[in-house]
C-alpha cells in the first residue's frame, strides 16, 4: 500500500469530525446512559448502610429492589439477568446455611433445633444469624454489580475529571494505565515461555508454582515501568500538563435526571435506616 501518497489537505466537507462511537448501551438502559458518577454516588451510601442494618426484612427488601434495578436499569441481556434474579436468592440461602455453622451454638441454644446429627445440632438461631450475613452479602454484591454493569472505569475517570475536579493529569495516568492491561497479558505470556525454556524453578507442587509466579513479577513489572516511562516522555512531548486544564472533546454532562437518580438512591438509604430502626 502506498498510503503515504499524501493527499492534499481537504477540510471543507469534513468540517465536523465525528466523535468515536461510545459503548453502545441500549437506549432505555437508564443507568447506563446516566452520568457515570451516578453509579458511584448512588449505590455507595447504600453499601455502607448495609453494614448497619440488622433487620432481615429491610435487607431482603433492599436486595429485591436492587436486583430489579440491576435488570431494569442496565438491561444486561437474558443470561446475566437470569443469573442475577436466580443467583441472588440462591446465594443468600447458601451463605445463610454455611454461615450458620460458624455461629457459636451455645449462644443460640434456646432456639429450636433444625437438624440433629448425634451430639451436634443446628439451631434455628444459627440459621437466622446466618441469613443476616447472607442477605448482607447478596445486597452488597448486587449494589456492586449495579455499578459494574452501568459504567466502565475509563468513563468514571473522565466524568470525575469533569465534575469532581480530580486533576486531569491523575485521571489521564489512570486512563493510560487501562491500555497497559492487554500489554501485560502479552508480556506475561512471553516471559512465562522464556522462563520455561531457561529452566527456572522447574518442578511440581504449589511451592515451585509460587516461586515461578513470583519470578515473573519482576521482569513483568520492570518492563511495565520502562514502558510507562517511555509513554510518559511521549505524553510530556505532547504538551501534557502545559495548562491546569485541557480541552475535552467528549463530555459527560450532568443532567437533572442524574440528580434525581442520585437523590432517589439516597432516599432509599434513609428509608432503609428508618425502617430498620423503627422495627
Amino acid at each position: 500500500m502506498s498510503a503515504a501518497t499524501v493527499q492534499a489537505p481537504v477540510v471543507a466537507e469534513h468540517a465536523v469530525v465525528a466523535a468515536p462511537a461510545r459503548a453502545s448501551a441500549p437506549r432505555r438502559a437508564f443507568l447506563r446512559t446516566a452520568n457515570p458518577l451516578v453509579s458511584l454516588a448512588g449505590p455507595f451510601p447504600l453499601m455502607v448502610v448495609v453494614f448497619f442494618v440488622a433487620d432481615l426484612r429491610v435487607l431482603a427488601a433492599m436486595g429485591v429492589a436492587t436486583a430489579i434495578l440491576v435488570v431494569a436499569g442496565t438491561l444486561p441481556g437474558p443470561r446475566v439477568s437470569a443469573a442475577v434474579l436466580l443467583g441472588a436468592p440462591l446465594t443468600a440461602g447458601i451463605v445463610a446455611v454455611s454461615f450458620g455453622f460458624w455461629v457459636d451454638a451455645a449462644a443460640v441454644a434456646s432456639t429450636p433445633v433444625l437438624v440433629q446429627a448425634g451430639p451436634w445440632a443446628y439451631h434455628a438461631g444459627q440459621l437466622e444469624i446466618g441469613l443476616l450475613t447472607g442477605l448482607r452479602v447478596v445486597d452488597l454484591m448486587l449494589l456492586a454489580l449495579l455499578g459494574a454493569l452501568a459504567t466502565t472505569g475509563p468513563d468514571v475517570v473522565r466524568a470525575s475529571i469533569q465534575h469532581l475536579r480530580i486533576p486531569y493529569r491523575l485521571g489521564y495516568a489512570a486512563l493510560a494505565a487501562v491500555r497497559f492491561v492487554p500489554r501485560f497479558g502479552h508480556e506475561l505470556e512471553v516471559i512465562r515461555s522464556a522462563h520455561r525454556v531457561r529452566g527456572v524453578a522447574r518442578g511440581r507442587g504449589p511451592v515451585a508454582a509460587t516461586r515461578r509466579q513470583a519470578g515473573y513479577a519482576v521482569p513483568l513489572l520492570a518492563g511495565g515501568i520502562r514502558h510507562a516511562e517511555r509513554v510518559s516522555y511521549a505524553m510530556d512531548a505532547r504538551a501534557f500538563g502545559a495548562h491546569s486544564t485541557r480541552t475535552e472533546r467528549t463530555t459527560h454532562p450532568w443532567r437533572l435526571r442524574d440528580t434525581a437518580l442520585v437523590l432517589s438512591f439516597w432516599a432509599a438509604c434513609v428509608a432503609a435506616l428508618v425502617l430498620a430502626a423503627g422495627v
Partner: peptide, 29 residues
C-alpha cells in the same frame, strides 16, 4: 507502542492540541 495514550486514532491525534487548550473546532481541523 510506547506513544499511544488513547483508544482511537482520532483521539490520539487530538491529545496534543487538547493539552494546548485549543478550541474544539481548531483541534479537529
Amino acid at each position: 507502542d510506547a506513544q499511544v495514550v488513547t483508544g482511537s486514532v482520532l483521539d490520539e491525534v487530538c491529545f496534543g492540541p487538547e493539552n494546548l487548550l485549543l478550541p474544539v473546532a481548531e483541534i479537529e481541523r
